[in-house]
């Protein structure tokens, strides 16, 4: 999988290669462009310059006679089906039960018969520990439970890549753990993931590589032990110092 990517304003040239099975942690202060970067990958944001490829296939845009053209909305929809996304604010469909939320993509996008979709939804609900909440509506669940459903909804589609956008930022502290456990399970099962997070402990735990973004650029990247424990740039040091207990000291 290969991505090259640049954008004049918010993203000023971000280039990344993400091998299959990698869990890439993206950290950085707010406004550094990390969420925008994530949202560009599945075309929730448009970008002016650059290309993104998933399994060798250009995502979102295509060069036709030397000119960059946006793909048709239906083609983009098909590509998005291969990329799962979990949002900061859960975004469960409010008019559907937990089970219906998970089944919608399976039946309408994957065109699965509803019995099979229900079985699969049940299996995923079991994995995120919410079997007994199947027939409840989102507003009847806690934030942590909603977010676990949102994760189940995304992974049930068997995407090639998962995008996690600050998935614990809207949660009460005591609910963060249950969500992180589910994500940790996914990481161990070999899912390729891009994880934007402020949970430094968590990033150090699950990421195989960490990218520090600053001002729309990648300022530093490397293995989590190196980036989080022995940061090189002063900016990264001051960023990490704002998260107590990460044990970050400048190298040397």
């Amino acid at each position: 999988m290969h991505k090259r990517f640049g954008r004049t304003e918010v993203l000023k040239g971000v280039s990344l290669d993400i091998p299959r099975g990698e869990v890439l942690g993206i950290i950085g202060s707010s406004g550094s462009g990390k969420t925008t970067f994530l949202r560009c990958i599945n075309l929730l944001e448009e970008y002016e310059v650059g290309t993104i490829e998933l399994d060798g296939q250009a995502i979102g845009y295509r060069m036709i006679a030397g000119r960059r053209k946006r793909l048709r909305e239906s083609e983009i929809s098909d590509q998005r089906a291969e990329i799962g996304m979990v949002f900061q604010s859960f975004n469960l469909f409010p008019h559907m039960t937990v089970e219906q939320n998970i089944m919608l993509g399976l039946t309408k996008v994957r065109r699965m018969p509803s019995a099979a979709a229900r079985t699969l939804a049940g299996a995923w609900l079991d994995r995120v520990g919410l079997t007994d909440k199947r027939d409840l509506y989102p507003y009847q669940l806690s934030g942590g439970q909603q977010q676990r459903v949102a994760i189940a909804r995304a992974v049930a589609m068997e995407p090639k890549l998962m995008l996690l956008d600050e998935v614990t930022s809207a949660l009460d502290p005591e609910l963060v753990g249950e969500v992180l456990n589910v994500i940790r399970g996914l990481a161990h099962s070999g899912m390729t993931m891009l994880v934007v997070s402020h949970e430094m402990h968590f990033v150090r735990d699950i990421a195989t590589r960490v990218v520090f973004m600053e001002g729309g650029r990648i300022a530093e990247e490397g293995p989590p032990g190196e980036i989080l424990m022995r940061p090189r740039s002063a900016r990264l040091v001051s960023f990490l110092n704002r998260f107590h207990g990460t044990g970050s000291q400048p190298a040397g």
């Binding site: 599945n42 998005r80 089906a81 996304m85 949002f87 975004n91 469909f93 996008v109 909804r153």
Partner: peptide, 21 residues
Amino acid sequence: VRYVEAAKAIGLRPFQRQIYV
């Protein structure tokens, strides 16, 4: 907008997004 984005993210086409979400 966040519901529409969720619908986009699971790969629903424009017409399906209207009908189901």
